[in-house]
């Protein structure tokens, strides 16, 4: 267990040293700035948009992390633990940790804006409940986003161009799912994708978040995130380097 924890620490260290967080965070900050300068913005609408953007950014981040991986470095890590399973567990937990970091970062701006009402950014006062539930939704989006982005790594799909296109397609379809669902053929495949677009469907005309709905959405998105991570690990485990 100690090895796995140290492996997560090591991966985070490398992640920051490789500056992989910079571009996604810049884009996220830009969006935060853009979204909350459209005042007055309804807190629910703002958060829904933020969820979608965070999801896409996390797909990108997950993709980048996997692309920048050095196979030999990974091989050395895998041999550091006796069981291959521990190696994959460490990798999955690391991705979830990155998801958590980004969710916190994404929430930071609206949170600051809500405690310091600088000229009424929001059209109504933001409650603690809003923030707490927004955080759950962001975390859910973040987790399933990074897992989807990392799904088609080199070990899983040798054709990188095709993998990139497929990842992009999956990400876009996920975001537009509620519209596309109406077309029967596409609709059948929707269960493969995380219910990110359901956030908009559920909350678009609501005044407040509802804890019950939020929990279901959060659980579903985390479930998909973990499912993708497990599928990815299983494929890598089977194929080796």
């Amino acid at each position: 267990m100690r090895s796995v924890l140290e492996m997560i620490k090591y991966r985070l260290h490398i992640f920051f040293k490789r500056h992989l967080y910079v571009m996604p965070m810049v884009v996220l900050a830009l969006f935060d700035g853009f979204c909350f300068s459209l005042k007055p913005v309804h807190p629910i609408t703002g958060m829904i948009m933020l969820c979608f953007v965070l999801f896409l950014i996390m797909v990108w981040t997950g993709w980048m992390i996997m692309e920048k991986e050095d196979p030999v470095e990974e091989q050395l890590l895998q041999l550091r633990v006796v069981r291959k399973r521990s190696y994959y567990m460490g990798k999955c937990l690391f991705l979830l940790a990155v998801g958590l970091i980004f969710a916190v970062f994404a929430l930071a701006v609206p949170m600051l804006l809500s405690v310091q009402p600088i000229g009424g950014v929001f059209s109504r006062p933001v409650t603690v409940g809003d923030l707490a539930q927004a955080f759950l939704l962001l975390l859910g989006c973040s987790c399933c986003g990074i897992a989807l982005g990392g799904l088609l790594s080199f070990q899983v799909m040798r054709d990188r161009k095709f993998a990139l296109l497929l990842t992009l397609l999956l990400a876009v379809v996920t975001v537009l799912a509620s519209t596309l669902k109406k077309y029967a053929v596409v609709g059948w495949f929707m269960w493969l994708l995380p219910p990110v677009s359901d956030i908009a469907e559920v909350y678009v005309s609501c005044e407040y978040f509802q804890p019950g709905q939020t929990t279901i959405l959060f659980a579903a998105m985390v479930f998909y995130g973990i499912l993708y991570l497990l599928v990815h690990s299983a494929l890598c485990y089977k194929r080796g380097f």
Binding site: S3, E6, K9, Y10, I14, D70, E73, L77, R80
Partner: peptide, 21 residues
């Protein structure tokens, strides 16, 4: 071919040492 990891040698070796227990 040992990969050039973007850490100092000591940082890297410390991580690996702790991973080794």
């Amino acid at each position: 071919k040992f990969p050039a990891i973007p850490l100092t040698a000591e940082q890297y070796l410390l991580h690996t040492g702790v991973m080794d227990g």
